[in-house]
């Protein structure tokens, strides 16, 4: 009965969607705003990659909000999981080859992530994609050897600093340009160069570090959560608060 009702509902919804989608134009996007952005992007932001221009300059507030969603999701996840003492994991340590491979991959992924982030205003890629690679750099060795500690003090400070930089650059621009999150107070620079496009590379660096740290800690929270049969080790409240 339940299955039948949901199938009926789904057929109704599919019909509704097909009516909606049927009336949409395809291949003739009404680029009301998009055309203006494509035309003005280089002049306004100096970034070759128009998507970067939209993400960091024209719609910077969306990106700040999205960054914060990652942050608050990681915070809430950290609140929900129970803590397990470091080193008492029942998850087996991976074999020698995987361990060595993970250690080998670490610097490689780090460099790749940094490259993708810093060239985000010139080529495809940027803070999100590079941040995901950075996160992989940190959690691949962690997955190979789940016993080790993931988040140290240094990590917390990088995370806080990166997030704060994103907002502080925005507040700084109030004093230089009069507008919150105006990214061009450094000048657009020479088109196509690594150091160009105002504060966009800086913003992307902050974004990439923050995204990497948050995604990494989300994976770590889940990886470190005690499984169904692990004994629960309650840490004292004070230790959890720290």
């Amino acid at each position: 009965m339940r299955q039948f009702a949901s199938l009926l509902f789904l057929f109704g919804f599919a019909f509704f969607l097909s009516v909606l989608v049927g009336g949409l134009p395809f291949g003739a996007a009404p680029m009301q705003v998009g055309q203006a952005i494509v035309e003005q992007n280089i002049e306004a932001t100096g970034a070759a990659n128009a998507v970067t221009g939209v993400l960091l300059a024209f719609r910077g507030m969306d990106t700040l909000g999205e960054l914060t969603i990652l942050f608050v999701a990681a915070t809430a996840a950290g609140m929900v999981v129970e803590r397990r003492k470091h080193g008492v994991s029942r998850d087996s340590v991976a074999g020698f080859i995987l361990l060595a491979g993970a250690e080998l991959m670490f610097p490689f992924l780090l460099i790749l992530g940094a490259y993708v982030i810093l060239h985000g205003h010139l080529t495809p890629g940027g803070g999100f994609q590079g941040g995901a690679i950075l996160a992989a750099a940190f959690f691949v060795p962690f997955l190979a050897n789940p016993g080790r500690a993931f988040q140290g003090h240094a990590m917390a400070f990088v995370e806080a600093f990166a997030g704060a930089t994103f907002i502080l650059l925005g507040i700084f621009s109030i004093f230089r340009e009069g507008d919150f999150m105006a990214p061009m107070f450094l000048g657009t620079g020479e088109f196509g160069q690594l150091v160009s496009a105002g504060s966009l590379p800086l913003l992307y660096l902050a974004l990439g570090l923050k995204v990497g740290a948050e995604l990494g800690s989300l994976v770590a929270e889940i990886a470190a959560a005690p499984g169904s049969d692990d004994p629960l080790i309650e840490e004292p409240q004070a230790a959890k608060d720290l």
Binding site: T68, F157, F161, A164, F180
Partner: peptide, 29 residues
Amino acid sequence: MNPEILIALPLLAAFLLPAARRIDASVGI
């Protein structure tokens, strides 16, 4: 005072809080 600060200030404070409470635990309260 720009109303954008209404958004920026709490988010900035939220980003800094996890680091700040490592320096002094009472910050969290």
